[in-house]
């Protein structure tokens, strides 16, 4: 791929052809405030915060401007400062005011931008604050949708369309009344939503937040135990408890994406009813046994059967090696082709 050189705030930056000015700047470690940009999604240029000045062209948004050889970019000017500051202030006075009660506190993009721009309380006081209060959609067992914290960046809408392909939500109405909505503003569970949480993972503010998630003390790289796809993930752990799961962006299998089970279905890991030893039925009830006891019992009983009397079902959740072994056993030892698998086992 062709590389290009451009100047951002006097610094020479190398970029690849096809990158936007915003991407080139971020990659070079130069921060430009942005809210609707997400590296996984096509740029739309609606938050109007990533303004820059380009020599010969004037002020424009950097997320929709492709880099060009020799381009001279400035990230600060009085015009940029005015347009951006007022836009951020307007977002704040139209946003839920209580940051401390927000699950995104500390990880919120709006906070990040506000800190960068520098918010002055006296300036906010002059503006008319919103008095609107919209109902929160708590129909989904895994996440909450709070329109009062939404900045309408559209990342959730684009994620659902471009990445998930479900398009369960879209913009509805217009102007100040614009909201992100399902058909008829029904609860999200009554839509095509698959609860995969991809939108939740990308929401830059507190509009989409997981219901039962806590910040982990550390993360463990792992592979999802649910199906045969083998999505890479990070288990967020506190003590010995999994409190959060996130997709591993570097995994070539899923590139950070997860489904509802992989992301939210980790409750079984620390569940009190989870089996931790084999059980053998004795006198009509299951009793705990060691692995040796259990395997001896299975081997002894299998000895009584051969050929088509036997069938084996394996699981896509097993490794390839395990599945190979079982089919080998079925065919070579038990003498039958009766082997199948099911991804849900």
């Amino acid at each position: 791929m062709k590389t290009l050189r451009l100047t951002i705030d006097g610094v020479t930056v190398t970029a690849r052809e096809g990158m936007s000015v915003l991407e080139a700047a971020l990659e070079a470690g130069i921060y430009i405030p942005h809210l609707c940009h997400h590296p996984d999604l096509k740029p739309v240029g609606v938050c109007r915060l990533c303004l820059v000045e380009i020599a010969g062209r004037g002020m424009t948004i950097s997320c929709k401007t492709p880099v060009e050889e020799g381009m001279v970019v400035k990230t600060e000017s009085p015009d940029i400062e005015l347009a951006r500051r007022v836009a951020v202030e307007l977002l704040i006075v139209n946003h839920h005011a209580d940051c401390l009660s927000c699950a995104k506190d500390g990880a919120c993009k709006l906070q990040e931008i506000a800190r960068y721009v520098g918010i002055e309380e006296e300036r906010l006081q002059r503006l008319r604050r919103t008095t609107r209060s919209l109902p929160v959609d708590s129909s989904n067992p895994f996440f909450l949708r709070d329109p009062n914290r939404c900045v309408l960046c559209g990342i959730c809408v684009r994620t659902c369309e471009e990445i998930v392909g479900a398009s369960a939500i879209d913009y509805a109405f217009r102007g100040y009344a614009t909201v992100i909505s399902t058909l008829g503003n029904r609860p999200i569970v009554q839509s095509r939503c698959e609860s995969c949480g991809e939108c939740v993972a990308r929401c830059p503010v507190g509009a989409l937040v997981p219901r039962q998630e806590r910040n982990p003390a550390r993360e463990v790289r792992s592979v999802c135990a649910y199906c045969g796809v083998g999505c890479g993930l990070y288990l967020g752990v506190r003590g010995n408890q999994v409190v959060r799961v996130r997709g591993a962006a570097e995994s070539p299998v899923n590139r950070g994406r997860l489904c509802v089970k992989g992301r939210y279905g980790h409750g079984y890991i620390g569940h009190p009813e989870r089996l931790t030893t084999p059980l053998i039925k004795r006198d009509g009830r299951f009793v705990e046994a060691s692995w040796d006891e259990a395997l001896d019992l299975v081997a002894a009983r299998l000895a009584g059967y051969r050929g088509d009397q036997f069938a084996a079902l394996t699981s896509a959740r097993c490794t390839n090696e395990e599945n190979y072994l079982l089919q080998k056993f079925t065919r070579a030892v038990m003498g039958t082709h009766n082997i199948d698998h099911c991804a849900r086992l």
């Binding site: 609606v46 109007r48 836009a87 900045v151 309408l152 217009r174 100040y176």
Partner: peptide
């Protein structure tokens, strides 16, 4: 206003 961009929608 279509409501898409911040300055117009909120401004």
């Amino acid at each position: 206003s279509c409501g898409e961009c911040v300055p117009c929608r909120l401004g």
